[in-house]
Design a protein around this nucleic acid. Structure first.
Length: 157
DNA sequence: GCCAACGTTGGC
DNA sequence: GCCAACGTTGGC
């Protein structure tokens, strides 16, 4: 089974790539996803060893800062039934978890940020979901070609 | 901080 | 099951 490729968004003010790097084992359970399409990708398709383009949103400039990898496949997200959590969902329970999470581990920081502006400007990446207008998915698939191309961009000045 | 583009909710 | 209202996302 060949590995798959993904892009995950995060707001660096909330949880940044450096925060991930600083975690024990450089690993974090990706809780708090409350979008069905994103959940389904995690639940059905994300497998150990998959690679992730790590994207910083709501910052200046927005863009891809590095690569992470999937180290734990989907399990129920306990924050969903924790009333104290920001991600609390009253319709979720341990019996009916509704939401799930994968675990991600830091892999490498790019030598430089690859900005959204650059992604948008490159015709080779015109099909990438992250450059489409109005896209709000926080987890989305990326093709191997796109992934490899972004890695190459990160190594050019 | 504004606001357009989304996804979700719930009345009917 | 339609769709208006509402809440959220995220670039700018």
């Amino acid at each position: 089974m060949p590995r798959k490729y993904w892009l995950m968004k995060t707001e660096p003010d909330v949880f940044s790539f450096d925060d991930l790097k600083d975690r024990p084992h450089q690993t974090e359970p990706w809780d708090g996803i409350r979008n069905y399409q994103a959940r389904n990708y995690m639940r059905d398709e994300m497998k150990i060893g998959d690679r992730i383009l790590f994207y910083h949103s709501r910052c200046d400039p927005p863009g891809i800062v590095g690569v992470a990898e999937v180290v734990g496949e989907a399990v129920p997200d306990p924050s969903a039934w924790d009333p104290k959590s920001n991600y609390y969902d009253e319709k979720a329970s341990p019996e009916n978890p509704r939401w799930c999470m994968v675990s991600v581990r830091y892999f490498e920081t790019f030598p430089r940020l690859v900005s959204l502006e650059e992604l948008k400007a490159d015709p080779k990446l015109s099909e990438m979901r992250v450059v489409q207008r109005g896209n709000r998915l926080s987890i989305m698939p990326v093709t191997k070609e796109e992934f490899d191309y972004v890695i190459k961009m990160s190594r050019k000045s």
